[in-house]
Amino acid sequence: MQIRIKLYASLRWKLFEEAEWECTPGQKIASIVEQLGLPRNDVGTVLVNGLHAAWDEMVQDGDVLSLLPRMGGG
């Protein structure tokens, strides 16, 4: 199955902005991030179709997975 991955800010600078991604049915977000070669610590927020999601959630065919770097300030 195929999903669309969107990366932002430092993650985008490291890899790409947007790409179609092949994954297996039932694949968890954590495993996709690992496939991408991104350290988990670099990813602060995960969205699936614009909604906050957890690392162990599974994606569905056609989902848009957005990965945002960790934010900070103050």
């Binding site: 932002y8 800010a9 430092s10 985008r12 600078w13 670099d42 602060g44 927020t45 969205l47 957005s66 945002l68 770097p69 960790r70 934010m71 900070g72 300030g73």
Partner: peptide, 18 residues
């Protein structure tokens, strides 16, 4: 970013813009 970091608080703009 050249050190592999997030580039400071500046990156917050892009994240919040999502």
């Amino acid at each position: 970013t050249s050190q592999g970091g997030g580039g400071g608080t500046w990156a917050n703009i892009e994240v919040l813009q999502v």
